[in-house]
Amino acid sequence: MDGKRPSSFYILAAVFALFILFLYGPTITIGILSFQGEGGGLTFPMRGVSLHWFAELFQQQAVGDIWGSFSRSLILGLMVMVTTVVVSIMGGLAFRKKFAGSGVLFYLVIASLVIPSILVSLGVGLIFSQSGLPVHWATSGYGAQLTWTLPFGLLIMFAVFNRFDKSYEEAARDLGASPWQTFRFVVLPIIAPSLIGVALFGFTLSYDEFARTLLTSGSYNTLPLEIYGMTTNVTTPVIFALGTLTTAFSFIVIGVALAAFMLFGRRRAKQGSDAGKGMV
């Protein structure tokens, strides 16, 4: 192909640029508006620039229990993340072998992904209330969120293991490694970068989850529930300040995951093949 780009490239590039603007524009707007002056409202013009609305977030009585719900979301996110990683690895390994019921389990995973979230929320809530168990974010909420994060984790593991070169394991086995050793010292290091992806999905999907947590979190809200509650009774830019902070937090988490992913890649490149580098 020659270097000159067809005219369709420029049209599509413009569409793509508009799409990116469409994706990020609103978020950037509330980012700007959260620095609204003290007398400002929910939209432009800006009446001065201030940190007033951020300061308001730190005054407990002004708006709900933000920091409590944030710490609950954080803990729950970490719980869901660890579980998602472990269960997805195990499930991914299981699906490489043939076992009775694998077809049913596979379709359950897909069903878990496409089933309307409110059904999971309602069903889990009903089971807990009818059996007399208290709904709590760390029990019923945790389980309900796993039905959302596990399918993503497993789909990543399927993709990983489909491209996995089995000869590495065979080599390990031929050299006398036990199945556990093969997994721990051969398979795990190879799939490790993808696990960062699984962890990222596990944490962020839990941290932002709303519908499946709604009826399963009990009397203590997670952050998305708290924010949703605020939308009905808070009419000041304080909600933008909260939105900006939590989006910034998400960006940090994504940034850390990407950095870890690249670090892995670089380390691997350094430690990787030494073909042609000596002993010739």
Binding site: F95, I115, L126, P179
Partner: peptide, 24 residues
């Protein structure tokens, strides 16, 4: 071994997906 590896996944989906739907 495959069943053992698939069991946590099965338990989560049975308890928090299948049972809730049955309950509904």
């Amino acid at each position: 071994i495959a069943w053992f590896l698939a069991s946590p996944l099965t338990l989560v989906l049975a308890g928090f997906l299948v049972l809730p739907i049955v309950m509904i």
